[in-house]
Simulated assay, not measured.
Amino acid sequence: MADVDQAKQAARERMWSLLEREHAVPPGVHGRIPSFFGAEDAAARLAKLPEWHDARVVKAVPDTPQEPVRARALREGKLVYMAVPKLAEDMPFYLLDPAELTVTPEEAAARRVAAQVGRKVDVDAMQPVDLIVCGSVAVNQRGVRLGKGAGYSDIEVALLQEAGLIGPGTTIVTTVHSLQVVDEDLPETAHDFSVDIIVTPEAVIRCGEPRRPRGLLWDDLPPEKIAAIPVLAARQKARR
């Protein structure tokens, strides 16, 4: 596992350096999901897909490059779930309901504003999710992706899988800069999920057979991470 983690981090570092060198992102991208130039165009391209058109409920990451996606979803009347930072609350998701917003969709899509106007909900109170939008540091054409290394997106997907809120009909998409799409194998582990669709400002790439963990892989979760995420601590206690 340590070797895989090191390989993942090396791939991230190469990508962050490439993006900065090619001026595809603002400075200071290391350690982050890249806020790539063209994120608005990628969101617009995503919105042309049938999977987007058919989606009524969207689960989106809170990262800045996916803010245009969240704003567009709210403008179009979709329910948006967004994770509480680091899943650090008993109710680990915000619900953004366009019918209940007291600010514009563009304002509500911003992470800090969403935390103020969104309603916190537990996994058990969520509706089934039609479309998941995630950020990536790098992704290949098979749909294997690397996040920034914290593992929260994997935990979110596993939680939704265990709760029966996602299934074969749920599409997972990532929006990225074209440079973030690599033509090479990327290291992955059993708890990683793959994406179905990659959307860049210029193109849509449909990936191969998706890979979804069946749920939380407890043996892969360090005790300190379980203790720091209330929903995991509660579920571990219930398992005993």
Rank of each mutant, 00 (worst) to 15 (best):
A2T: 11
D3M: 13
A7T: 05
E20D: 00
E22H: 10
R32P: 01
I33Y: 13
S35A: 06
S35I: 06
G38V: 11
A39Y: 09
D41S: 11
A47W: 13
K48I: 05
P50C: 07
V58E: 01
R72L: 15
L74K: 12
R75Y: 00
G77Y: 04
L79K: 04
L79Y: 05
Y81S: 02
M82E: 00
K86W: 13
L96H: 04
L96I: 13
T102M: 07
T102V: 13
V103L: 11
E106D: 07
R112E: 00
V113H: 05
Q116H: 15
V117L: 07
M126L: 06
P128D: 07
G135V: 10
A138Y: 11
Q141P: 01
Q141E: 01
G143D: 01
L146H: 06
K148V: 12
K148N: 14
G149Q: 08
A150N: 09
D154E: 03
L160D: 02
Q161I: 11
G169D: 08
G169C: 08
G169I: 09
T170R: 10
T170S: 06
I172A: 10
S178K: 15
Q180F: 15
V182Y: 12
D183N: 14
E184K: 14
L186W: 05
E188F: 14
A190I: 13
H191W: 12
D196F: 11
I197Y: 08
A203Y: 07
V204M: 12
R206N: 03
R206S: 03
R212E: 02
P213C: 06
P213N: 05
L217A: 02
P223L: 15
A227M: 07
V231K: 00
A234P: 00
